[in-house]
């Protein structure tokens, strides 16, 4: 049902004008308003939006500084039509807004979408619906390469163009490249873990995760046959150490029981 079907035309247009003012801040003249009070509506609404986005993206907010961050939040609120009624999902829409409008390019912040994606993924992975996995038992190191492993189903593998997880380090340079982050939720605590992966480990892990009935050695060989990995690009002990670390961190639950 259209809003105008249940509201008087006049009421609807006043509400629309008030909402537009709250979003855009352009002066309006409405009947019955007390001078100087209308701006508080906008201030209060904007405070809520600012609070939600700053809480979701504390690193980006700090990086940009309050002035530039405030400008971004205001532009987003004025120009983006949020689709989701759940306010916490507004944070995801900020990322959509930046990608759609190429805001980051216009402002000379090429890494901004990656930074927001990294921060958003933590929320997304934390909020993922629970999935079940087959029963498993811890896998001995000697079997990690050749056994069907059970993986944590609550994860995202991010392919980033900028190493935004290293943005605080002296050697951070906003130069594009290939960077990978494994983001997963700990089974018991619900905490979200971050692991930075080299392209080799990222492609190997992704192949194992996407394939059915394959062990790590099988995935390694498939990638070599496909010409993606060099035949002797990594020593097996390194690979076992990698898998062991993931098992210790509970990304690998173990082998099928």
């Amino acid at each position: 049902m259209e809003q105008t079907d249940v509201l008087k035309q006049n009421t609807s247009s006043i509400q629309g004008a008030l909402a537009r003012y709250c979003r855009e801040g352009a002066a309006i003249d409405l009947p019955g308003i007390t001078p100087g009070r209308l701006e508080h509506y906008r201030r209060l609404v904007l405070n809520v939006v600012h609070g939600i986005l700053s809480e979701a993206y504390p690193i980006a907010a700090r990086c940009l500084g309050s002035s530039k961050w405030g400008e971004l939040v205001e532009q987003f609120f004025a120009n983006h039509k949020c689709h989701n009624p759940q306010v916490w999902l507004m944070a995801r829409e900020l990322l959509d807004f930046i990608e759609e409008t190429a805001y980051h390019e216009a402002k000379g912040l090429p890494f901004l979408p990656d930074l927001l994606l990294m921060e958003w993924t933590e929320i997304e992975v934390h909020s993922m619906p629970d999935n079940t996995t087959p029963p498993s038992t811890p896998c001995p190191d000697s079997q990690l390469l050749s056994t069907h492993l059970v993986f944590n189903p609550h994860y995202k593998l991010l392919h980033l163009s900028y190493p935004v997880h290293r943005i605080h380090l002296d050697d951070f340079e906003p130069k594009p490249g290939n960077f990978f982050l494994l983001v997963f939720r700990e089974e018991k605590s619900g905490k979200v873990q971050f692991v930075s992966l080299s392209p080799y480990f990222a492609t190997l892990l992704d192949t194992v995760l996407q394939s059915e009935g394959i062990d790590v050695l099988g995935a390694k060989n498939a990638l070599v046959e496909a010409g993606i990995h060099a035949p002797k690009s990594i020593h097996e002990p390194q690979l076992v150490y990698f898998l062991k670390s993931l098992q210790d961190k509970q990304f690998i639950f173990g082998k099928v029981a």
Partner: peptide
Amino acid sequence: ENKTNIRISALA
């Protein structure tokens, strides 16, 4: 019979 379906990583 074990079903095997290898899907090379889209990342690669």
